[in-house]
């Protein structure tokens, strides 16, 4: 298994489209190394990983009426989606 160092974290951040500062990269490298050590030592096994519960998939047709779907659609002003005003008493 790959050892966790700052280069590994940098590569993972690149894959996950995350930009990390230098201090954060150092901190997360330590955390990730500790998490990998803590969590990845699992015993071997030969269990069948096929899921037995069959999913009941839904049909592809939409049943919502267009007016129901559009009732809470965001407003478009001058070609841009306007952020709706939320109710009074919001935090932040």
């Amino acid at each position: 298994m790959t050892n966790i160092d700052e280069n590994t974290v940098a590569r993972l951040a690149d894959l996950a489209k995350l930009r990390l500062g230098e201090e954060e990269k150092t901190r997360l490298t330590g955390d990730l190394a500790a998490m990998v050590k803590l969590f990845t030592e699992l015993p071997d096994g030969q269990e069948d990983i096929t899921e037995n519960d069959r999913l009941i998939t839904r049909p592809d047709e939409a049943h919502e009426a267009p007016e129901d779907v559009m009732r809470c659609a965001p407003e478009v002003r001058e070609g841009c989606i306007a952020v709706p005003r939320t109710f009074a008493g919001t935090n932040g």
Binding site: I4, L18, E24, L28, D31
Partner: peptide, 21 residues
């Protein structure tokens, strides 16, 4: 990159990195 970096806090970033790994 910038959206995800500014949008997510550190705990979320930590778990995304472990998941990606």
């Amino acid at each position: 990159n910038m959206t995800r970096s500014e949008g997510f806090g550190e705990e979320v970033r930590r778990r995304i990195l472990l998941g990606t790994f």
